[in-house]
Design a binder for these strands. Structure first.
Lengths: 206, 206
DNA sequence: CTTGACAGCTAATTTGAATTAGCCTATAAT
DNA sequence: ATTATAGGCTAATTCAAATTAGCTGTCAAG
Protein backbone atom coordinates (compact mmCIF):
# COMPACT_ATOMS: atom_id res chain seq x y z
CA UNK A 1 0.00 0.00 0.00
CA UNK A 2 2.94 2.30 0.43
CA UNK A 3 4.00 1.41 -3.09
CA UNK A 4 3.70 5.02 -4.07
CA UNK A 5 6.23 6.00 -1.48
CA UNK A 6 8.48 3.06 -2.26
CA UNK A 7 8.59 4.18 -5.87
CA UNK A 8 9.79 7.59 -4.80
CA UNK A 9 12.52 6.11 -2.65
CA UNK A 10 13.73 3.75 -5.35
CA UNK A 11 13.65 6.49 -7.95
CA UNK A 12 15.53 8.92 -5.73
CA UNK A 13 18.20 6.33 -5.12
CA UNK A 14 18.62 5.66 -8.83
CA UNK A 15 18.45 9.31 -9.88
CA UNK A 16 21.09 10.22 -7.33
CA UNK A 17 23.44 7.54 -8.62
CA UNK A 18 23.01 7.82 -12.37
CA UNK A 19 21.12 11.00 -13.10
CA UNK A 20 17.54 11.30 -14.29
CA UNK A 21 18.35 10.76 -17.95
CA UNK A 22 20.23 7.53 -17.40
CA UNK A 23 17.57 5.82 -15.33
CA UNK A 24 14.95 3.72 -17.10
CA UNK A 25 11.52 3.29 -15.68
CA UNK A 26 12.11 -0.44 -15.88
CA UNK A 27 14.88 -0.12 -13.34
CA UNK A 28 12.68 1.82 -11.00
CA UNK A 29 10.04 -0.84 -11.25
CA UNK A 30 12.56 -3.57 -10.69
CA UNK A 31 13.89 -1.83 -7.61
CA UNK A 32 10.35 -1.66 -6.24
CA UNK A 33 9.50 -5.18 -7.31
CA UNK A 34 6.90 -4.43 -9.95
CA UNK A 35 6.94 -4.13 -13.73
CA UNK A 36 7.42 -0.84 -15.49
CA UNK A 37 3.85 -0.38 -16.70
CA UNK A 38 2.55 -0.78 -13.16
CA UNK A 39 4.35 2.40 -12.22
CA UNK A 40 1.80 4.23 -14.27
CA UNK A 41 -0.92 3.22 -11.84
CA UNK A 42 0.80 5.53 -9.38
CA UNK A 43 2.43 8.26 -11.42
CA UNK A 44 1.49 9.46 -14.83
CA UNK A 45 5.05 9.67 -16.18
CA UNK A 46 8.70 9.43 -15.32
CA UNK A 47 8.85 13.19 -15.07
CA UNK A 48 5.93 13.03 -12.68
CA UNK A 49 7.96 10.79 -10.37
CA UNK A 50 10.78 13.28 -10.44
CA UNK A 51 8.41 16.11 -9.61
CA UNK A 52 6.94 14.15 -6.75
CA UNK A 53 10.43 13.76 -5.31
CA UNK A 54 10.93 17.48 -5.51
CA UNK A 55 7.57 18.13 -3.89
CA UNK A 56 8.22 15.72 -1.09
CA UNK A 57 11.51 17.42 -0.60
CA UNK A 58 9.98 20.84 -0.36
CA UNK A 59 7.71 19.49 2.36
CA UNK A 60 10.60 18.09 4.32
CA UNK A 61 12.24 21.44 3.96
CA UNK A 62 11.42 22.67 7.44
CA UNK A 63 12.62 19.45 8.97
CA UNK A 64 15.84 19.71 7.02
CA UNK A 65 16.40 23.27 7.93
CA UNK A 66 15.96 22.44 11.58
CA UNK A 67 18.36 19.55 11.43
CA UNK A 68 20.83 21.61 9.53
CA UNK A 69 20.68 24.54 11.85
CA UNK A 70 20.71 23.12 15.30
CA UNK A 71 22.21 19.78 14.68
CA UNK A 72 22.85 18.20 18.05
CA UNK A 73 24.12 21.13 19.99
CA UNK A 74 21.65 23.92 20.60
CA UNK A 75 24.20 26.63 20.13
CA UNK A 76 21.83 29.22 18.84
CA UNK A 77 19.71 29.34 21.95
CA UNK A 78 22.07 29.25 24.88
CA UNK A 79 24.70 31.38 23.30
CA UNK A 80 24.17 34.35 25.53
CA UNK A 81 27.08 36.45 26.57
CA UNK A 82 27.84 33.98 29.30
CA UNK A 83 27.88 30.44 28.04
CA UNK A 84 31.24 29.68 26.60
CA UNK A 85 31.32 27.92 23.25
CA UNK A 86 34.32 25.77 23.64
CA UNK A 87 36.47 24.63 20.78
CA UNK A 88 35.27 21.12 21.40
CA UNK A 89 31.69 22.20 21.01
CA UNK A 90 32.49 23.83 17.70
CA UNK A 91 34.20 20.65 16.57
CA UNK A 92 31.27 18.59 17.68
CA UNK A 93 28.91 20.79 15.77
CA UNK A 94 30.99 20.75 12.61
CA UNK A 95 31.54 17.02 12.63
CA UNK A 96 27.89 16.47 13.49
CA UNK A 97 26.73 18.58 10.59
CA UNK A 98 29.15 16.86 8.25
CA UNK A 99 28.19 13.38 9.34
CA UNK A 100 24.53 14.12 9.13
CA UNK A 101 24.85 15.47 5.60
CA UNK A 102 27.01 12.56 4.57
CA UNK A 103 25.15 9.68 6.18
CA UNK A 104 21.49 10.57 6.30
CA UNK A 105 20.26 8.52 3.42
CA UNK A 106 17.60 10.89 2.27
CA UNK A 107 19.65 14.04 2.61
CA UNK A 108 22.59 12.45 0.90
CA UNK A 109 20.67 11.09 -2.03
CA UNK A 110 18.84 14.28 -2.51
CA UNK A 111 22.04 16.25 -2.59
CA UNK A 112 23.60 13.94 -5.13
CA UNK A 113 20.56 14.08 -7.33
CA UNK A 114 20.55 17.84 -7.18
CA UNK A 115 24.23 17.87 -7.98
CA UNK A 116 23.59 15.97 -11.19
CA UNK A 117 20.59 18.03 -12.21
CA UNK A 118 21.73 21.44 -11.03
CA UNK A 119 22.19 22.92 -14.49
CA UNK A 120 18.98 21.50 -15.87
CA UNK A 121 16.82 24.43 -15.01
CA UNK A 122 16.66 27.48 -12.86
CA UNK A 123 14.42 25.94 -10.22
CA UNK A 124 16.94 23.22 -9.55
CA UNK A 125 19.94 25.49 -9.40
CA UNK A 126 18.10 27.76 -7.00
CA UNK A 127 17.17 24.83 -4.84
CA UNK A 128 20.73 23.58 -4.73
CA UNK A 129 22.08 26.97 -3.86
CA UNK A 130 19.54 27.61 -1.18
CA UNK A 131 20.06 24.24 0.46
CA UNK A 132 23.80 23.93 0.34
CA UNK A 133 25.09 27.47 0.14
CA UNK A 134 22.86 30.33 1.15
CA UNK A 135 20.97 28.69 3.94
CA UNK A 136 23.96 27.25 5.80
CA UNK A 137 25.94 30.42 5.32
CA UNK A 138 23.16 32.59 6.55
CA UNK A 139 22.59 30.50 9.63
CA UNK A 140 26.22 30.26 10.55
CA UNK A 141 26.71 33.88 9.82
CA UNK A 142 24.09 34.65 12.44
CA UNK A 143 25.78 32.30 14.86
CA UNK A 144 29.23 33.82 14.46
CA UNK A 145 27.70 37.23 14.66
CA UNK A 146 26.40 36.33 18.10
CA UNK A 147 29.65 34.77 19.16
CA UNK A 148 31.51 37.91 18.19
CA UNK A 149 29.00 40.16 19.90
CA UNK A 150 29.30 38.00 22.98
CA UNK A 151 32.99 38.66 22.97
CA UNK A 152 33.87 35.03 22.45
CA UNK A 153 35.50 35.57 19.10
CA UNK A 154 37.47 38.38 17.59
CA UNK A 155 35.38 41.05 15.97
CA UNK A 156 35.52 40.14 12.30
CA UNK A 157 33.02 39.98 9.47
CA UNK A 158 30.65 37.18 10.43
CA UNK A 159 29.65 36.39 6.86
CA UNK A 160 33.24 35.78 5.96
CA UNK A 161 33.73 33.69 9.06
CA UNK A 162 30.75 31.59 8.08
CA UNK A 163 32.23 31.11 4.63
CA UNK A 164 35.57 30.13 6.07
CA UNK A 165 34.00 27.74 8.52
CA UNK A 166 31.51 26.13 6.19
CA UNK A 167 33.28 26.00 2.81
CA UNK A 168 35.85 23.40 3.90
CA UNK A 169 33.06 21.30 5.30
CA UNK A 170 31.18 21.62 2.02
CA UNK A 171 34.18 20.74 -0.07
CA UNK A 172 35.05 17.70 2.01
CA UNK A 173 31.43 16.63 1.83
CA UNK A 174 31.34 16.71 -1.96
CA UNK A 175 34.66 14.90 -1.92
CA UNK A 176 33.19 12.09 0.16
CA UNK A 177 30.17 11.95 -2.11
CA UNK A 178 32.57 10.86 -4.83
CA UNK A 179 34.91 8.87 -2.59
CA UNK A 180 33.23 7.44 0.49
CA UNK A 181 36.46 5.63 1.28
CA UNK A 182 38.10 8.94 2.04
CA UNK A 183 35.75 9.80 4.87
CA UNK A 184 38.25 9.13 7.62
CA UNK A 185 40.81 11.39 6.04
CA UNK A 186 38.17 14.04 5.53
CA UNK A 187 37.04 13.88 9.12
CA UNK A 188 40.57 14.33 10.36
CA UNK A 189 41.11 17.32 8.13
CA UNK A 190 37.77 18.76 9.15
CA UNK A 191 38.58 18.54 12.82
CA UNK A 192 41.99 20.10 12.28
CA UNK A 193 40.33 22.82 10.28
CA UNK A 194 37.87 23.66 12.99
CA UNK A 195 40.48 23.74 15.72
CA UNK A 196 42.75 25.90 13.64
CA UNK A 197 39.82 28.11 12.74
CA UNK A 198 38.97 28.48 16.37
CA UNK A 199 42.57 29.17 17.24
CA UNK A 200 42.75 31.90 14.65
CA UNK A 201 39.58 33.66 15.75
CA UNK A 202 39.37 32.89 19.40
CA UNK A 203 39.65 35.93 21.65
CA UNK A 204 42.09 34.37 24.05
CA UNK A 205 44.83 34.13 21.47
CA UNK A 206 44.91 37.71 20.38
CA UNK B 1 39.16 20.73 -42.16
CA UNK B 2 39.24 21.22 -38.43
CA UNK B 3 35.76 19.76 -38.30
CA UNK B 4 36.99 17.08 -35.98
CA UNK B 5 38.07 19.66 -33.47
CA UNK B 6 34.95 21.73 -33.95
CA UNK B 7 32.87 18.69 -33.12
CA UNK B 8 34.71 18.28 -29.85
CA UNK B 9 34.15 21.91 -28.94
CA UNK B 10 30.47 21.84 -29.76
CA UNK B 11 29.99 18.57 -27.92
CA UNK B 12 31.83 19.79 -24.84
CA UNK B 13 29.68 22.88 -24.77
CA UNK B 14 26.49 20.84 -24.98
CA UNK B 15 27.61 18.15 -22.55
CA UNK B 16 28.58 20.78 -19.99
CA UNK B 17 25.17 22.42 -20.21
CA UNK B 18 22.86 19.43 -20.38
CA UNK B 19 24.85 16.35 -19.49
CA UNK B 20 25.89 13.58 -21.84
CA UNK B 21 22.60 11.73 -21.72
CA UNK B 22 20.48 14.71 -22.63
CA UNK B 23 22.43 15.72 -25.69
CA UNK B 24 21.44 14.26 -29.05
CA UNK B 25 23.94 13.77 -31.80
CA UNK B 26 21.69 15.86 -34.00
CA UNK B 27 22.29 18.85 -31.76
CA UNK B 28 26.01 18.38 -31.94
CA UNK B 29 25.83 18.26 -35.71
CA UNK B 30 23.65 21.32 -35.82
CA UNK B 31 26.06 23.22 -33.61
CA UNK B 32 28.87 22.33 -35.97
CA UNK B 33 26.82 22.98 -39.08
CA UNK B 34 26.57 19.44 -40.43
CA UNK B 35 23.97 16.69 -40.26
CA UNK B 36 24.09 14.00 -37.62
CA UNK B 37 25.22 11.14 -39.87
CA UNK B 38 28.20 13.16 -41.02
CA UNK B 39 29.53 13.09 -37.50
CA UNK B 40 30.25 9.42 -38.04
CA UNK B 41 32.85 10.29 -40.65
CA UNK B 42 34.88 11.66 -37.76
CA UNK B 43 33.93 9.64 -34.72
CA UNK B 44 32.55 6.17 -34.57
CA UNK B 45 29.93 6.89 -31.93
CA UNK B 46 28.61 9.44 -29.48
CA UNK B 47 30.56 7.77 -26.72
CA UNK B 48 33.65 8.07 -28.88
CA UNK B 49 33.19 11.82 -28.98
CA UNK B 50 32.97 11.90 -25.23
CA UNK B 51 36.12 9.85 -24.91
CA UNK B 52 37.93 12.12 -27.31
CA UNK B 53 37.04 15.07 -25.09
CA UNK B 54 38.49 13.27 -22.12
CA UNK B 55 41.63 12.40 -24.03
CA UNK B 56 42.11 15.92 -25.24
CA UNK B 57 41.64 17.00 -21.68
CA UNK B 58 44.28 14.67 -20.37
CA UNK B 59 46.68 16.12 -22.90
CA UNK B 60 45.97 19.65 -21.84
CA UNK B 61 46.54 18.53 -18.30
CA UNK B 62 50.04 19.89 -18.01
CA UNK B 63 48.95 23.20 -19.39
CA UNK B 64 46.07 23.30 -16.94
CA UNK B 65 48.23 22.39 -14.02
CA UNK B 66 50.64 25.14 -14.88
CA UNK B 67 47.92 27.70 -15.21
CA UNK B 68 46.37 26.55 -12.01
CA UNK B 69 49.56 26.59 -10.07
CA UNK B 70 51.33 29.74 -11.02
CA UNK B 71 48.47 31.77 -12.27
CA UNK B 72 49.74 35.28 -12.91
CA UNK B 73 51.94 35.77 -9.95
CA UNK B 74 54.97 33.55 -9.81
CA UNK B 75 54.75 33.09 -6.09
CA UNK B 76 56.30 29.70 -5.96
CA UNK B 77 59.61 30.74 -7.38
CA UNK B 78 60.47 34.03 -5.80
CA UNK B 79 59.14 33.15 -2.40
CA UNK B 80 62.47 32.91 -0.71
CA UNK B 81 62.83 34.01 2.86
CA UNK B 82 63.18 37.58 1.67
CA UNK B 83 60.49 38.52 -0.81
CA UNK B 84 57.43 39.52 1.11
CA UNK B 85 54.13 38.09 -0.07
CA UNK B 86 51.88 40.98 0.61
CA UNK B 87 48.19 40.63 1.33
CA UNK B 88 47.49 42.28 -1.98
CA UNK B 89 49.52 39.67 -3.77
CA UNK B 90 47.57 36.93 -2.09
CA UNK B 91 44.34 38.63 -3.09
CA UNK B 92 45.56 39.00 -6.63
CA UNK B 93 46.46 35.36 -6.77
CA UNK B 94 43.14 34.21 -5.36
CA UNK B 95 41.04 36.41 -7.57
CA UNK B 96 43.18 35.48 -10.55
CA UNK B 97 42.72 31.81 -9.94
CA UNK B 98 39.01 32.25 -9.42
CA UNK B 99 38.53 34.33 -12.53
CA UNK B 100 40.56 31.97 -14.63
CA UNK B 101 38.55 28.98 -13.49
CA UNK B 102 35.30 30.83 -13.99
CA UNK B 103 35.94 32.51 -17.31
CA UNK B 104 38.28 30.33 -19.31
CA UNK B 105 35.83 28.75 -21.67
CA UNK B 106 37.49 25.40 -21.92
CA UNK B 107 38.28 25.04 -18.23
CA UNK B 108 34.81 26.11 -17.25
CA UNK B 109 33.00 23.81 -19.61
CA UNK B 110 35.13 20.93 -18.70
CA UNK B 111 34.48 21.46 -15.02
CA UNK B 112 30.74 21.63 -15.55
CA UNK B 113 30.74 18.51 -17.64
CA UNK B 114 32.71 16.67 -15.01
CA UNK B 115 30.32 17.94 -12.38
CA UNK B 116 27.42 16.35 -14.20
CA UNK B 117 29.19 13.08 -14.91
CA UNK B 118 31.16 12.73 -11.70
CA UNK B 119 29.20 9.77 -10.36
CA UNK B 120 29.10 7.95 -13.65
CA UNK B 121 32.24 5.95 -13.14
CA UNK B 122 35.35 5.83 -11.10
CA UNK B 123 37.58 7.35 -13.75
CA UNK B 124 35.47 10.47 -13.86
CA UNK B 125 35.22 10.90 -10.13
CA UNK B 126 38.98 10.49 -9.82
CA UNK B 127 39.52 13.04 -12.53
CA UNK B 128 37.22 15.53 -10.85
CA UNK B 129 38.85 15.07 -7.50
CA UNK B 130 42.36 15.35 -8.85
CA UNK B 131 41.60 18.49 -10.83
CA UNK B 132 39.51 20.42 -8.37
CA UNK B 133 40.48 19.10 -4.97
CA UNK B 134 43.73 17.23 -4.56
CA UNK B 135 45.84 19.09 -7.02
CA UNK B 136 44.97 22.62 -5.89
CA UNK B 137 45.22 21.63 -2.25
CA UNK B 138 48.57 19.99 -2.70
CA UNK B 139 50.00 22.93 -4.56
CA UNK B 140 48.74 25.50 -2.12
CA UNK B 141 49.79 23.38 0.75
CA UNK B 142 53.32 23.52 -0.56
CA UNK B 143 53.04 27.24 -0.96
CA UNK B 144 51.82 27.89 2.55
CA UNK B 145 54.42 25.54 3.84
CA UNK B 146 57.07 27.75 2.32
CA UNK B 147 55.46 30.90 3.55
CA UNK B 148 55.40 29.53 7.07
CA UNK B 149 58.96 28.31 6.87
CA UNK B 150 59.95 31.72 5.56
CA UNK B 151 58.46 33.22 8.67
CA UNK B 152 55.86 35.18 6.76
CA UNK B 153 52.91 33.36 8.28
CA UNK B 154 52.26 31.83 11.64
CA UNK B 155 53.45 28.29 12.00
CA UNK B 156 50.31 26.25 11.44
CA UNK B 157 49.44 23.12 9.52
CA UNK B 158 49.90 24.05 5.88
CA UNK B 159 47.47 21.47 4.59
CA UNK B 160 44.74 22.93 6.72
CA UNK B 161 45.68 26.43 5.64
CA UNK B 162 45.40 25.34 2.04
CA UNK B 163 41.98 23.91 2.73
CA UNK B 164 40.87 27.07 4.43
CA UNK B 165 42.21 29.24 1.67
CA UNK B 166 40.98 27.20 -1.25
CA UNK B 167 37.63 25.77 -0.12
CA UNK B 168 35.84 29.15 -0.08
CA UNK B 169 37.18 29.83 -3.53
CA UNK B 170 35.93 26.45 -4.67
CA UNK B 171 32.51 26.92 -3.16
CA UNK B 172 32.06 30.37 -4.66
CA UNK B 173 33.19 29.01 -7.99
CA UNK B 174 30.57 26.29 -8.03
CA UNK B 175 28.05 28.89 -6.92
CA UNK B 176 28.89 31.05 -9.93
CA UNK B 177 28.68 28.04 -12.21
CA UNK B 178 25.01 27.90 -11.27
CA UNK B 179 24.48 31.64 -10.96
CA UNK B 180 26.80 33.70 -13.15
CA UNK B 181 24.88 36.78 -12.11
CA UNK B 182 26.26 36.43 -8.59
CA UNK B 183 29.87 36.79 -9.66
CA UNK B 184 30.26 40.30 -8.33
CA UNK B 185 28.98 39.30 -4.93
CA UNK B 186 31.24 36.26 -4.96
CA UNK B 187 34.29 38.31 -5.85
CA UNK B 188 33.63 40.70 -3.02
CA UNK B 189 33.28 37.87 -0.54
CA UNK B 190 36.35 36.18 -1.92
CA UNK B 191 38.46 39.27 -1.46
CA UNK B 192 37.17 39.76 2.06
CA UNK B 193 37.91 36.14 2.76
CA UNK B 194 41.48 36.37 1.60
CA UNK B 195 42.16 39.55 3.55
CA UNK B 196 40.64 38.10 6.67
CA UNK B 197 42.55 34.87 6.12
CA UNK B 198 45.75 36.82 5.79
CA UNK B 199 44.91 38.84 8.86
CA UNK B 200 44.35 35.73 10.87
CA UNK B 201 47.58 34.03 9.85
CA UNK B 202 49.91 36.87 9.21
CA UNK B 203 52.84 37.03 11.55
CA UNK B 204 52.57 40.71 12.19
CA UNK B 205 49.24 40.39 13.93
CA UNK B 206 50.23 37.84 16.49
C1' DC C 1 41.83 13.19 -67.10
C1' DT C 2 40.86 10.00 -63.87
C1' DT C 3 40.91 7.87 -59.65
C1' DG C 4 40.45 7.45 -54.87
C1' DA C 5 39.53 9.12 -50.49
C1' DC C 6 37.48 12.62 -47.84
C1' DA C 7 33.49 14.70 -46.08
C1' DG C 8 29.06 15.78 -46.78
C1' DC C 9 23.93 14.48 -47.68
C1' DT C 10 19.26 11.84 -47.65
C1' DA C 11 16.94 7.94 -46.72
C1' DA C 12 16.72 3.78 -44.31
C1' DT C 13 17.27 0.77 -40.29
C1' DT C 14 17.74 -0.55 -35.52
C1' DT C 15 17.19 -0.09 -31.07
C1' DG C 16 15.55 0.82 -26.89
C1' DA C 17 12.77 3.12 -23.76
C1' DA C 18 8.29 5.40 -22.43
C1' DT C 19 3.76 4.90 -22.50
C1' DT C 20 -0.97 2.75 -23.53
C1' DA C 21 -4.38 -1.04 -24.00
C1' DG C 22 -6.63 -4.38 -22.13
C1' DC C 23 -6.96 -8.18 -19.08
C1' DC C 24 -6.92 -10.39 -14.25
C1' DT C 25 -7.31 -10.81 -9.16
C1' DA C 26 -8.15 -9.49 -4.64
C1' DT C 27 -10.51 -6.99 -1.53
C1' DA C 28 -13.49 -3.78 0.54
C1' DA C 29 -17.81 -1.37 0.47
C1' DT C 30 -22.81 -1.67 -0.67
C1' DA D 1 -23.38 -11.81 -3.17
C1' DT D 2 -22.14 -8.12 -6.24
C1' DT D 3 -19.58 -4.83 -7.77
C1' DA D 4 -16.17 -1.32 -8.17
C1' DT D 5 -11.61 -0.08 -7.48
C1' DA D 6 -6.84 -0.60 -6.77
C1' DG D 7 -2.91 -2.45 -8.39
C1' DG D 8 -0.64 -5.84 -10.85
C1' DC D 9 0.62 -8.25 -15.51
C1' DT D 10 1.63 -9.11 -20.67
C1' DA D 11 1.47 -7.59 -24.99
C1' DA D 12 1.19 -3.85 -28.03
C1' DT D 13 2.29 0.81 -29.62
C1' DT D 14 4.84 4.93 -30.30
C1' DC D 15 8.51 7.63 -30.76
C1' DA D 16 12.80 9.38 -30.77
C1' DA D 17 17.47 8.89 -31.23
C1' DA D 18 21.71 6.39 -32.73
C1' DT D 19 23.68 4.35 -36.31
C1' DT D 20 24.27 2.38 -41.18
C1' DA D 21 23.76 2.37 -46.29
C1' DG D 22 24.66 4.18 -50.15
C1' DC D 23 24.94 8.26 -53.19
C1' DT D 24 27.48 12.64 -54.54
C1' DG D 25 30.75 16.32 -55.30
C1' DT D 26 35.47 18.03 -54.63
C1' DC D 27 40.07 17.98 -54.99
C1' DA D 28 44.76 16.35 -54.84
C1' DA D 29 47.99 12.81 -56.61
C1' DG D 30 49.28 10.05 -60.26
Amino acid sequence: MNTKKRILDAALKLFSEKGYGNVYVGEIGEAVGIKAPSLYKHYKSKQDIFNAILDEMKNNYDKQAMALNMNGSDVNIDVGIFSAVSEDELVKMGIGLFSYFLHDEYVCRFRKMLTLEQFHDSELSQLYTKQYVDQPLSYQSAMFSMLCAGGLLRQEDAEVMALQFYAPLYMLLTLCDRHPEREEEALKLLEQHIRQFNGAYSRSLS
